[in-house]
């Protein structure tokens, strides 16, 4: 079975985000990028399926700072090939990057056709497009998102569970090939020792393929700022003891203590 995993890097929101001088994008000065968490789950699910059914896992990602580390880590975890799509400007929108990556897939030797394409069902920077649906549409494949369980049955049929509200999950049957937007894998992403990643950096290769961005941006961001809210929380400051006393007062005042 051939599985393709699409990954992308997103800003690490644990770090402080700053607006750039243009007032409409993120400052790149201290920006730390990390793998989109749900994409990492998609990779894990692909590796689980490989262990269960054999086959290969190829990872494709648009070029970005730190992406090499993520791709070498993917090799160390068990991916067979990793490919980087170059030619995209930094800070390009999700839709343009996705369309570029999808178009570049056909220039990766021996990649298409695949049985499954897995990617995260959402990313925090998906302002103008979602990776899974865009790729599915471009390749003419069916799509299901918010998937938390996926397996492949003999005869080329996929089975997956998709989350609906209130803890309800829909059970789906999928004709393969298909694109699946992963929310969570069956298990948390596997740990791989740093020595193994270093070994992958020495012995592994990141293939590169040049993408041609389609150009036109359908959505123009005119301003970016930290959200202004009508009423922010009243912050309780002081020593831990004082804060705890104040919280108790508040709860007691509402009859909650």
């Amino acid at each position: 079975m051939k599985t393709l995993v699409l990954l992308k890097m997103v800003p690490d929101v644990v770090e402080e985000l700053e607006v750039a001088g243009d007032g409409a994008s993120l400052s790149r000065d201290f920006l730390r990028l990390i793998i989109n968490e749900r994409d990492e789950n998609a990779l894990e699910q692909a590796l689980i399926l490989k262990e269960r059914h054999q086959g290969t896992v190829t990872v494709v990602a648009p070029d970005a700072p730190e992406v090499d580390d993520v791709l070498y880590t993917a090799l160390a975890r068990g991916a067979d090939r990793v490919v980087k799509v170059t030619g995209l400007e930094e800070g390009v929108g999700s839709a343009e990057a996705t369309v570029t990556v999808a178009a570049a897939l056909s220039s990766v030797a021996g990649l298409l056709p695949v049985d499954l394409i897995l990617t995260g069902c959402q990313a925090i920077d998906d302002l103008d497009g979602l990776v899974g649906p865009l790729v599915a549409h471009q390749l003419g494949l069916p799509y299901v998102g918010i998937v938390t369980g996926l397996d492949v049955h003999p005869g080329g049929m996929g089975r997956c569970l998709r989350e609906y509200p209130g803890g309800v999950r829909g059970s789906f049957e999928l004709d393969l090939p298909a694109v699946v937007g992963i929310q969570g894998a069956e298990k948390p992403p596997r740990y791989v020792p740093i020595a193994k990643v270093r070994a992958a950096m020495t012995s592994g290769t990141i293939e590169t393929v040049a993408g041609s961005p389609p150009g036109a941006l359908p959505l123009r961001v005119v301003e970016m700022k930290k959200p202004e809210v009508a009423e922010r929380a009243e912050m309780i400051a002081g020593g831990l003891d004082d804060i705890a006393s104040r919280v108790c007062e508040i709860l007691a005042g509402r009859g909650l203590l």
């Binding site: 997103v10 800003p11 929101v13 985000l17 607006v19 409409a24 993120l26 925090i124 920077d125 302002l127 103008d128 036109a216 941006l217 359908p218 959505l219 123009r220 961001v221 005119v222 301003e223 970016m224 700022k225 930290k226 959200p227 202004e228």
Partner: peptide, 14 residues
């Protein structure tokens, strides 16, 4: 609201 609610953008569809 983007970046997990950390930033707000004004955006104009072209």
């Amino acid at each position: 609201l983007v970046f997990g609610g950390k930033m707000e953008v004004r955006a104009v569809p072209e």
